[in-house]
Design a protein around this nucleic acid. Structure first.
Length: 334
DNA sequence: CGTTGGCCCTGATCGC
DNA sequence: TGCGATCAGGGCCAAC
């Protein structure tokens, strides 16, 4: 399941090939992969063809490709369809110097892959959407969106200014974020992520810590695998109430989250079931470095007792019952 | 308004 | 050998 490190591997792999590339054709094989697109597939196709990709940007698990201004013809079509205009005039009145107002938003969901393929290669069995592009670097290429469970999606969305004025995500300096990503919090590797605001939010919440780690509106990029790994490393039980965590333990947890994400990033992204495949189709598997996730029945690498798997939030939670116990609120809150 | 549970999806795997 | 049941869980939204 792609989490921050896996999505970043995809972004980094895509970036050199798609930046300054022109979209020549778009084919939608599966309408449901456009669930988050506000319009039919014909609209999706017409609005993309002829435009250029300007960058590859990521926040948390969301990826987006800012697009050049639509061609006049595309604008006309959109107007005729009564579609509200995307946020415009952000960079002034001159189209040549205006900031990109729209982006192609990609979410991999559970099983999505974005594969860079040479033209002429056989189609993947679960191919949902294809972009035929002319890459400035590599000539004609295909950007194939492959997704088994169809939890992932592509959509065209307008770009909005970020409230804090900082770059919206990794991969671009632009302070512009797709509307449907605006409610997603900055991820813990984002230089504009505020540790203090995160700690304050934990203290104010009335929920368990794992639920909070998985809440993309609070902190983004963490999924089930890295939540379990970071909690194991910080020796915190998944259902420990956030308000009972001392500031010191919260600090430790955030540090472990960053460590786990950075380690995965350095190794090229974890994978599971070989569902995740990086941008060129090579598997980025390194489950050998997992200490808790999927390790039920095996010895805890720290204390040797058995790792347990419990069902929680409709997903599995893997932890060491000895190292990770729910603790009472500390009386001397830091 | 903050929090929570349910739902969407289907290929791979398991057990009978 | 075949087939039905089970499993995986990110994001969203209705409901409490």
């Amino acid at each position: 399941m792609p989490e921050l490190p896996e999505v970043e591997v995809v972004r980094a792999g895509l970036e050199p090939a798609v930046t300054a590339a022109t979209i020549d054709a778009v084919t939608v094989f599966e309408e449901r992969s456009l669930r988050r697109h506000d319009g039919p597939s014909e609209d999706f196709v017409e609005r993309l063809v002829g435009r250029s990709i300007l960058a590859a940007v990521r926040r948390g698990k969301f990826l987006w490709l800012p697009l050049s201004a639509p061609t006049p013809k595309t604008q006309e079509i959109r107007h005729e369809m009564g579609r509200s205009a995307a946020v415009g005039a952000i960079g002034g009145t001159s189209p040549a110097f205006s900031e990109p107002a729209e982006a192609l938003v990609v979410h991999l969901g559970m099983s999505g892959q974005v594969l860079l393929r040479d033209v002429g290669r056989a189609d993947d069995a679960l191919l949902r959407i294809r972009l035929d592009i002319s890459s400035a670097h590599d000539g004609p290429l295909r950007v194939d969106f492959v997704d088994q469970r169809i939890f992932g999606s592509m959509a065209i969305d307008g770009l909005l200014p970020t409230p804090d004025g900082h770059a919206a995500g990794f991969g671009s300096d632009a302070a512009l974020i797709p509307g449907q990503v605006a409610h997603i919090a900055r991820d813990p590797l984002d230089p504009a992520f505020s540790d203090r605001r995160f700690f304050d939010a934990l203290a104010a919440r009335r929920t368990g810590i794992k639920r909070a780690l998985l809440d993309q509106g609070l902190i983004s990029g963490i999924g089930n695998i890295y939540a379990d790994e970071a909690l194991w490393a910080a020796r915190i039980h998944y259902d420990q109430p956030t308000a009972t965590l001392s500031r010191a333990r919260a600090r430790t947890l955030l540090a472990e989250v960053r460590l786990v994400l950075r380690r995965a990033l350095a190794e090229g992204g974890t994978s599971f079931d070989a569902q995740y495949v990086n941008v060129n189709g090579a598997s980025g598997y390194f489950s050998h470095s997992l200490n808790a996730y999927g390790q039920q029945g095996k010895g805890c690498p720290r204390c040797g007792r058995s790792i347990v798997r419990e069902s929680f939030m409709n997903r599995g939670s893997h932890f060491c019952p000895f190292c990770q116990k729910i603790r009472p609120a500390s009386t001397t809150a830091a």
